[in-house]
């Protein structure tokens, strides 16, 4: 019986590692561009993966102090990307 919870925790740790890997991939796109919209989309995904990471971390540690943070970021992330989208256009029209 003690084996399964430990295994589950291990799986969650692997999940965090995979999330880190995907964040690296997203950052590659973020740096590479080429257009502002590319970077915006990449940033959006980065925020989503950060949220996912926070939830996984909360599930792993049982520490629910981060849950309000998740709520806040999910809202601010939306506002941020929608606002930036309005300004990014002039930079893309190269």
């Amino acid at each position: 019986m003690t084996g399964l919870p430990a295994l589950l925790d291990g799986v969650l740790v692997v999940c965090l590692v995979l999330l880190g890997l995907s964040a690296v991939l997203v950052v590659v796109r973020l740096l590479r561009g080429p257009s502002g919209l590319d970077r915006l989309v990449a940033l959006d995904v980065l925020v989503a993966e950060f949220l996912v990471g926070l939830v996984v971390y909360a599930a792993l540690t049982g520490n629910s102090a981060l849950v309000p943070v998740v709520v806040a970021i999910s809202l601010v992330g939306f506002l941020g990307s929608t606002t930036v989208a309005r300004f990014v256009r002039r930079g893309t029209d190269r």
Binding site: V11, L25, V26, V45
Partner: peptide, 18 residues
């Protein structure tokens, strides 16, 4: 955990697609 694993795999594949 299974649910989380599937979600994380989707995120990983999405980064690849990006």
């Amino acid at each position: 955990t299974v649910s989380i694993v599937v979600g994380v795999l989707l995120a990983l594949v999405a980064s690849v697609g990006l």
